[in-house]
């Protein structure tokens, strides 16, 4: 067991080191420029306020989370209240002061459909 423990210890730091090395070496792919996306007003977003048709505004970007809601770790009701609304606070606090992980923030890019425009 001692050898297994030592091997696991070495493997752990090797994996962490490899991840950091890749992060440092692999160039960042520029994401789609937000400016190229269509613009939506808050009034338009507000029409998509159900869990089946759920748009949200987070940091001036518009997202369609309709397909994501069934995959969200928390029950659908947690996200339902933010559908059709400005939801930056929800994203940053989860409702109890805890920000979402970087993974969650990065994953949102998949669901962006546009940017917020003035009414």
């Amino acid at each position: 067991m001692k050898q297994v423990g030592f091997a696991a210890f070495v493997a752990f730091w090797s994996c962490v080191g490899t991840l950091l090395m890749l992060f440092w070496l692999v160039p960042v792919t520029p994401s789609d420029a937000a400016e190229e996306k269509p613009g939506y007003t808050l009034a338009e977003v507000a029409k998509h306020n159900t869990t089946e048709d759920c748009w949200m505004v987070i940091e001036s970007r518009v997202y369609d989370f309709s397909d994501y809601i069934p995959k969200h770790p928390a029950p659908a009701i947690v996200m339902a209240n933010w559908c059709g609304n400005e939801a930056t606070e929800g994203m940053k606090t989860k409702g109890y002061g805890n920000n979402h992980s970087q993974m969650a923030w990065d994953m949102m890019a998949r669901y962006q459909i546009g940017v917020l425009k003035e009414d």
Binding site: V16, F23, Q102, M103, D106
Partner: peptide, 23 residues
Amino acid sequence: LLLAFAAAEISMDAAVYTLFSSQ
């Protein structure tokens, strides 16, 4: 490690920030 590898599906940034978040 598994959580970081899972996040690598999104991006390398997500993988590293999963491990080294300031949360």
